[in-house]
Simulated assay, not measured.
Amino acid sequence: MAGGDISDLDKNRALVEWLRYQLGRAEKRVQELESAEQAERRRSGRARAEQMWKIQPQRTAKTALLHRGGCGLYTSGALIDREAAISALSEPDIAPCDVCRPETGLRQE
């Protein structure tokens, strides 16, 4: 170290520390972006489900039930579109769910 200059070793140690700091910040940002992306996928999936319907199969003497896609009372089943839901409600053995009231989204406009 001539004349108070910083040695190459000290410069490189400082550089390594700075790069570790930058890497930590970049990794944190990637985690934030991944979390935001996952949350957006969940929101998008819920929004899609809310625009769809599903049918809970008939059990024993009970009638089958039509639910909104996002109804939590019946979480299984494939989603169906508006036309299929309107058709399902016209069937005598399918009734609308009393909780999510899917028929309100099926009124003819």
Rank of each mutant, 00 (worst) to 15 (best):
G72Y: 00
R41C: 01
G105A: 09
A2V: 02
T75V: 12
V99F: 15
Q38N: 11
M1V: 03
M52T: 10
A78K: 15
S90N: 14
A47W: 04
D81Q: 06
G105P: 00
L106A: 15
I6A: 04
D93L: 14
M1C: 07
R20C: 13
S90P: 00
D5Y: 07
M1D: 00
V30A: 08
I6E: 03
Q22L: 09
R82E: 09
E27L: 12
S7L: 11
A85V: 00
D10K: 02
S76N: 04
E91M: 11
Q31A: 14
R46C: 02
C97H: 14
D93M: 10
S35R: 03
I55L: 14
L66E: 08
A47H: 02
P57S: 14
D8L: 14
G72L: 06
L9H: 11
M52L: 12
R48I: 06
G105I: 12
Q38V: 01
Q108W: 01
Q31K: 09
P92E: 15
A88T: 02
A14D: 15
G4W: 11
E91F: 01
L89A: 01
K54N: 08
R82K: 09
Y21R: 10
Y74H: 08
A85I: 07
A2Y: 07
D81H: 15
A61H: 08
I86R: 10
L73Q: 05
L23E: 06
K11V: 07
C97I: 05
L66P: 08
Y74I: 06
L66C: 01
A95H: 15
I86W: 00
G45V: 02
M52R: 13
G3C: 10
P96H: 05
L89T: 06
A49N: 08
R20T: 04
V30W: 03
G72C: 04
A64S: 15
Q108F: 00
L33F: 00
G70R: 05
E83N: 10
T60I: 04
T60E: 15
R25L: 13
V99D: 08
D5A: 12
K28G: 10
S7A: 05
Y74F: 15
H67V: 05
A78F: 04
G77S: 06
